[in-house]
Design a protein around this nucleic acid. Structure first.
Lengths: 143, 143
DNA sequence: AATACTGTATTAATCAGCTTAATACAGTTG
DNA sequence: CAACTGTATTAAGCTGATTAATACAGTATT
C-alpha cells in the first residue's frame, strides 16, 4: 500500500501518517475504507507493530481515521479529511511565502511559479479524473 | 544575536544555520561581517562550542560564510547568499504547491494567498527600507 | 616572546527519541 | 473456541544530537 523511504530523516510513523493521509486526499482511500490491521501493515513494511500503531494513533488524533476495538481502523469522513489536509498545507504554504518574501523573492515570481506548476499538473489530473471514488463503500479491503 | 527554540524538533545546529542565514538575507548581517566566535556564541546560547562549530561548518558548506583559521568566520558575498537562499526557498515552495494541488486546493486560492501575504508585509517592508546595509564594512562586530 | 584570542580536530560520555521485542488484555467475527 | 481486531505496557537496543575535555595551529596585541 505504501513505501517507506529510509533516506527520509523523519521517523517512520510520520511517513506513514503523511502517505496514508495523502492516499485519502487523493481519493485512493475513500470514506469508511478499512485500513490494513496494525499487524499486517507491520508485516508488509517489515517493521514493528508498535510503530504502525503509533502512526494510527496520530492519524486518529488528526481526524484522518477512526478505530474500533476488535473491528479495525477506517478512513474518516472525506469532508473532515479534506478540511484538515488543506488547512495543514495552507499553513505550510503561508510559512514558505513569508520566508520567500523576507528573502527578497518577488511576488510575481511566486505567482508565476504557482501558475506554472498548476498548468504542468493539469494534464495528468485531467487524465486521472473519474478513475477514483468507489462511492464510499466500506466492505472491501484495498490491501 | 539569535534565540533558540527548544520546542523546535530540529537539532540546534540546524536552527542556528537557518537563523543566521535569515539575518544575512534580511541585511542584518552584511558581507564580510565577522560572526561571533564559536566559543562566544556557545556561551551566549548556553550550549557547547562543538554544536556551534557544527552549525558554522554547515553554513560554510552551503556558502553562507567563510572561515579563516585564527581570524574568525565571516559573512560571505551577498550575491552568493541571496542566490543560495532563494533557490532553497523556491524548492520548498514548489514542494508545498505540488502537495496543495494534489490535495485539491484551487490555483486561485494559492494566488490570492500570495497576494494577501505580500500586501500585508509591504507596509513593514517599506517602513524598514534604508535602515540596513552599512556598506559591507567588515571592521565592526555586531555582538 | 608571551598572552589571548581565533578555527579546527578528536575522543568519550551522556541524553532523547525512535524502534524493536515480547507479552498481555479486551472486543469482534465466523 | 479460534482467529482475527485494537490497545497497553515494559524493557531493551539503536542512532543522532549534544556535551565535555583536551589539544593543536594560526593570528593579533603587547
Amino acid at each position: 500500500m505504501i513505501l517507506l523511504d529510509y533516506k527520509d530523516r523523519r521517523p517512520i510513523y510520520e511517513q506513514i501518517v503523511e502517505k496514508l493521509s495523502d492516499l485519502m486526499v487523493r481519493g485512493v482511500l475513500s470514506e469508511n475504507t478499512p485500513l490494513p490491521s496494525v499487524r499486517s501493515m507491520a508485516a508488509d513494511l517489515s517493521i514493528n507493530p508498535n510503530t504502525v500503531q503509533r502512526a494510527y494513533i496520530e492519524l486518529e488524533r488528526q481526524g484522518y481515521i477512526y478505530s474500533l476495538k476488535g473491528k479495525g481502523s477506517f478512513v474518516a469522513g472525506m469532508d473532515q479529511i479534506t478540511r484538515q489536509k488543506q488547512a495543514d498545507l495552507l499553513a505550510a504554504f503561508d510559512a514558505v511565502v513569508e520566508k520567500a518574501s523576507a528573502a527578497g523573492i518577488a511576488e510575481d515570481a511566486l505567482l508565476n511559479e504557482v501558475r506554472k506548476l498548476y498548468s504542468a499538473g493539469s494534464q495528468q489530473a485531467a487524465a486521472r479524473t473519474g478513475s477514483y471514488s468507489n462511492g464510499g463503500n466500506a466492505d472491501d479491503r484495498i490491501c
